[in-house]
Amino acid sequence: MMIKIREALVYAAISRAYELVDYNVQTNLNKRHEFRKKTIINDKTLTEDEKRVAINKLNKDYDHFTILFNNGEGRICEDCYNECLAKSYCENCLRNYLITKFSDWSSGNIDIDNLLQKCQMESCAPDMIVEWIPFNKLENIIYLTKGGFSEIYTADWTDGCYNEWDPIKKELKKFGVQEVILKKLEIAESDDRNWFEEVCKKFFFLKKKYLLVSCLDF
């Protein structure tokens, strides 16, 4: 039987849980996380299944922020035996897995490869990993519009992004077919370096804002 989850209601409850935190009382990440979970558990507008979905989202957020800010209760990973902060996965295992995949992809540009590899080595969560998307992994490419020095398209990414760590297989799982936005740049060869430096600046700015940037082979 398919369980119906009212996503809008779940995200509204999560937002309330964040808003109700008193930073003078819940003085660290762990206390704030526990308070948010209790808020969800006591939320009478949600079904039990919706509460589980909401708490799972809170747990993912908690893992992400403990690693991002290097602030949380550490543990020893039962697989790699290194200390880690995340509870639902090990950030060391995640990054080591990504290293084993470096030889499976290349943009054809050493600077871009180095940037993406550096970003992957700083990944905080399974669903926030910067990836190279080969053009042959894109289908149903549709032109949208043109503006400035670029053309905008939509497409289906056949594999989709990484989104979850599989603790049994010890590997990252893919999302599956996923719609993406493509930007085709019209730049002269002499502008390549300026473009690349701008991408680097924007990526590291956005990374601080906890957003994901993907570079596309297009």
Score class of each variant (00 low, 15 high):
M1H: 11
M1V: 11
I3L: 10
I3Y: 09
I3Q: 08
I5M: 08
R6S: 08
E7V: 09
A8C: 06
A8L: 11
V10C: 09
V10P: 00
A12R: 09
A13K: 01
S15Q: 13
A17L: 02
Y18E: 14
N24A: 07
N24S: 08
V25H: 07
Q26R: 01
N28E: 06
L29Y: 07
L29H: 11
R32Q: 11
H33F: 14
F35N: 07
F35Y: 14
K37V: 15
K38E: 14
I40Y: 00
I41P: 02
I41E: 15
N42E: 13
K44E: 15
T45H: 03
L46Y: 00
T47W: 05
D49M: 04
E50S: 02
R52T: 13
I55V: 11
K57G: 05
K57Q: 14
L58T: 00
L58F: 01
K60W: 01
H64E: 13
H64F: 14
T66W: 03
I67C: 12
N70T: 11
R75E: 10
C77T: 01
E78K: 09
D79S: 12
C80N: 10
E83I: 10
L85Y: 09
L85N: 06
A86L: 08
K87W: 01
Y89S: 05
Y89Q: 05
N92I: 14
N96P: 06
N96S: 13
N96W: 05
Y97E: 02
L98D: 03
L98A: 05
K101D: 02
F102G: 04
F102H: 08
S103N: 06
S103Q: 06
S106P: 01
S107P: 08
I112D: 02
I112M: 11
L115T: 08
L116W: 01
L116R: 01
Q117T: 06
Q117C: 05
K118T: 12
K118S: 14
Q120H: 04
Q120M: 13
A125N: 15
P126I: 03
I129C: 05
I129S: 04
V130C: 09
W132D: 05
W132T: 07
W132E: 03
I133E: 00
P134E: 00
F135I: 10
N136A: 10
I141P: 00
I142V: 15
Y143R: 11
L144T: 13
G148T: 11
G148L: 10
S150R: 10
E151F: 08
I152P: 00
I152D: 03
W157P: 00
Y162D: 03
W165M: 00
D166E: 09
I168Q: 10
K170N: 02
E171D: 06
K174G: 02
V177I: 12
V177M: 06
Q178G: 07
E179G: 05
I181L: 14
K183R: 12
K184D: 06
S190G: 04
S190Q: 09
D191S: 14
R193K: 12
N194Y: 13
V199L: 15
C200P: 02
K201Y: 13
K202V: 09
F203A: 04
K207C: 05
K207Y: 09
K209N: 12
K209A: 13
L211S: 13
L211M: 14
L212T: 15
L212A: 12
L212I: 14
V213L: 15
S214R: 13
D217R: 12
F218M: 06
